Amino acid sequence: MTPSVPKTTRTIVLANPPIGEVQADTFKLEEWPLAELKDGEVLLKMLAFGNEPAQRCWMDGNTDPRRLYVEPVKQGDAVRAFGIGEILVSKSDKWEVGQRVTGVFVWQEYLVVNEGGINGEAAVIPGMSEWIWLGIFGLNGLTAWAGATKECNLKPEHTVLVSGAAGAVGSVFVQIAKKVIGCKKVVGVAGGREKCDWVKSLGADDCVDYKSKSFKKDLQAALPDYADVFFDLAGGKVLDVALTVVARHGFISQCGALDIYNGKPLELTNYREVIYNRLTIKGFIIIDHMGSIAEATGDLGKWVQEGKISFTGGETVVDTKFEDVPKTWQMLFSGATRGKLITKLV
């Protein structure tokens, strides 16, 4: 390395795997040495991190690693995260200095990465957000695509319910369901009138506020003939109420459970509906569809160009000092964000 290249990097590690809510001592800021670059490696300066509810699952202190779908983040590990970084130094034949790349990285300011750990270039596309590779063209868009086309197998005749409809995955799913597939009726669930209005602007026929005291009554009024398909990203209370409006022999794709990731217990008072109405509930994780990334990326790019999917208003970008990266991530659980939550390092 040349003298102008950093020799160390600030790193946020998992100090105490959380059981229940994340605590003040869950994370720790440390200074780590940077390894000398080997052939096939690059040095990145991190520009932004994507924030995923699943990160809470990866670091959970009460989960059997054998039951987890990825390698857990262990005590003392740097916290894993999707991100975009700029190449400062390259010993790779595939990547050049100055290119912006995306991948599954960690919470570090600078990072030595093998070229095999880079997912692709995060080029700035004129007229689009510079962070779109962390949202629509990243994990969230791919998840919405696979959820709609592969897991739920949506058809025009379907009435569809989507929870977390103002979130990074749900907002894209709503648009695919209504504007691409042309589902008969699409109803979203979101927190607050402002978010619900935005979900309807994306194409949803209706959106119900789960924070309202009349949530159950409002949801039943929005779906008098029930939903054939329920794409659930929320879990908890929303799932419990939604069980009363899924049609007999209906399908529930359980893609997320944000309401319970941070230690809140799951209470289902309406679970008998699964039996009475012979409902099918199937868990869904995007890693089951990694072989379809090229198809998904092609479709999503085409739909954006055609105006069927909009990213307008679909990002919450937070300017963040590196030491405050965990605080921005925790905004996911506050209900204060809309669309994709992006940590922009400043």
Results as ranks from 00 to 15, higher is better:
1 M>P: 04
4 S>K: 12
4 S>W: 08
7 K>A: 15
11 T>N: 12
20 G>K: 08
28 K>Q: 14
32 W>H: 15
34 L>G: 05
36 E>C: 07
36 E>D: 15
38 K>G: 15
38 K>F: 12
40 G>H: 09
40 G>E: 10
40 G>D: 12
48 A>D: 07
57 C>P: 00
59 M>I: 09
60 D>A: 15
62 N>F: 03
63 T>E: 14
64 D>M: 09
64 D>Y: 05
70 V>E: 15
71 E>Q: 14
76 G>I: 06
82 F>C: 10
85 G>E: 09
88 L>W: 07
90 S>N: 05
92 S>L: 02
94 K>A: 15
97 V>Q: 15
99 Q>P: 04
99 Q>M: 13
100 R>S: 08
114 N>C: 03
116 G>L: 09
119 N>Y: 10
120 G>A: 08
121 E>V: 15
121 E>A: 13
125 I>V: 14
136 I>Q: 13
147 G>K: 02
153 N>H: 12
156 P>H: 11
160 V>L: 01
163 S>I: 06
163 S>G: 05
165 A>T: 05
172 V>D: 01
176 I>V: 14
176 I>D: 08
187 V>S: 01
188 G>H: 00
189 V>L: 02
190 A>R: 02
190 A>W: 01
195 K>Y: 03
196 C>D: 02
199 V>E: 09
199 V>K: 06
203 G>I: 08
211 K>E: 04
212 S>N: 10
214 S>D: 15
217 K>E: 15
228 D>E: 10
228 D>L: 04
230 F>K: 05
231 F>W: 10
232 D>Q: 02
232 D>V: 05
234 A>I: 04
236 G>K: 02
237 K>N: 12
238 V>K: 02
239 L>D: 00
247 A>M: 08
257 A>C: 01
258 L>K: 03
261 Y>S: 02
261 Y>H: 04
265 P>G: 06
270 N>T: 06
277 N>M: 00
280 T>E: 12
284 F>P: 01
284 F>T: 04
292 S>G: 07
299 D>I: 10
303 W>A: 07
319 D>G: 07
322 F>E: 07
322 F>I: 11
335 G>S: 07
336 A>Q: 15
